[in-house]
Design a protein around this nucleic acid. Structure first.
Lengths: 198, 198
DNA sequence: TAGGATATGGAGGCAGCCTCCGCTTTTCAA
DNA sequence: TTGAAAAGCGGAGGCTGCCTCCATATCCTA
């Protein structure tokens, strides 16, 4: 190891990241989110850079591969979904919080639907899913526990039941109108969750 | 309608399709099958044409879109799987025929796995799936009935049970070693099917 | 405010998509 | 068998997207 390298490692005081860099990163994620939702995982990266008003080189520095960008979008989606749980619980009654959260999760499934096949073709999928699974389950547990405690839903369900139901919702992925159908099913499910039927 | 057109429709003795055309079509399907299995649904069409030793123009005439080619490969796969059932039943004992057929179906799932996401992004999926579902169910029914009749498997199962099990097998699609795992599960399942446990 | 670290963006080279049309092969009627 | 028309072939060419590279611009720290 050379002298400079050693110095780099030992003495470098970590600079604050540049403001424009962070801003461009955000723009890219937002543009990518929209593009992937609209065009699928094969959306043109040059088009994404254009719509983020950023050079193609900038896109590639932040996200060296398509998968990196896909992953960033997915991660963001998961984080937002997880963060929504406590916010919803603070804002409304537990039952409505749960219902609203389930609705939000339909968007999450839309993202996952796009990303899963792309991710499947690569290594590194495990870590991403493991992290996201934990966040989702945690959020769900909060919501279900509160709703059970308040007596607004039956007490013999837990987060894993709803998780399974969500997977079921997403099973009809390939159909054209699946999102509308999934939303309808959320309502039905929520009605079914009320103590002693309605 | 013009005079020529009328004549075309009424009096034209249908020419035999050209031999080279049929041959090239077969070559293309075979090359595409290999390429899609190896590279996924995004395999290069020019590469497929090259490996079929056919011009790119020929590929496009036979299969105007990537989806058409994908569909032809899938349809072929389904037909072969369905045709394998009676052949296996003629060749070996019903239990072994069923086991072998289940193993073959892992390859079919591999094809479906590649094609489903591509098909999902388009219209026209319904007809394809409807036709394939019927063929598969028919083949399975034959195999199960014969194995039950001969007393080689328990009598309280039917084709739809196995179909469901197959879907379950394919559930872990995204994992890297899913094919090996699926094959192992086939064996376990077959053991479980023996009358009174083994 | 200067100077260096950091980030930008787009030109350019490459590959894949798809169309178009001049040329070749096959079929069929005589 | 032959010859002409139908059918099919194939690849050049135009276009778009992928990704790299580096001269230039911007930001952070002192």
């Amino acid at each position: 190891m050379s002298a400079e390298e050693f110095q780099n490692e030992a003495a470098s005081p970590p600079r604050r990241p540049r403001a424009d860099s962070a801003r461009n990163r955000e723009r890219l994620i937002a543009a990518a989110r929209a593009a992937f939702a609209k065009e699928g995982a094969e959306a043109s990266l040059e088009e994404i850079a254009r719509s983020a008003q950023v050079g193609i080189g900038t896109l590639y520095r932040h996200f060296p591969s398509r998968l990196d960008l896909l992953e960033a979008v997915y991660r963001r989606e998961v984080e937002q979904l997880a963060q929504a749980a406590p916010r919803l619980l603070a804002e409304r009654r537990p039952f409505e919080a749960l219902r609203e959260w389930m609705r939000l999760s339909v968007d999450y499934l839309a993202a996952k639907r796009v990303i899963a096949p792309a991710l499947a073709a690569s290594a590194g999928a495990p870590q991403i899913y493991a992290a996201s699974g934990g966040l989702i389950t945690g959020a769900m547990t909060q919501l279900v526990e509160r709703a059970v405690q308040s007596g607004e839903i039956r007490s013999d369900v837990d987060a894993s039941d709803l998780l399974r139901a969500m997977v079921g919702l997403s099973y009809s992925y390939t159909e054209p109108g699946w999102e509308a159908s999934a939303r309808r099913l959320v309502d039905i499910l929520m009605d079914g969750l009320r103590p002693q039927g309605r």
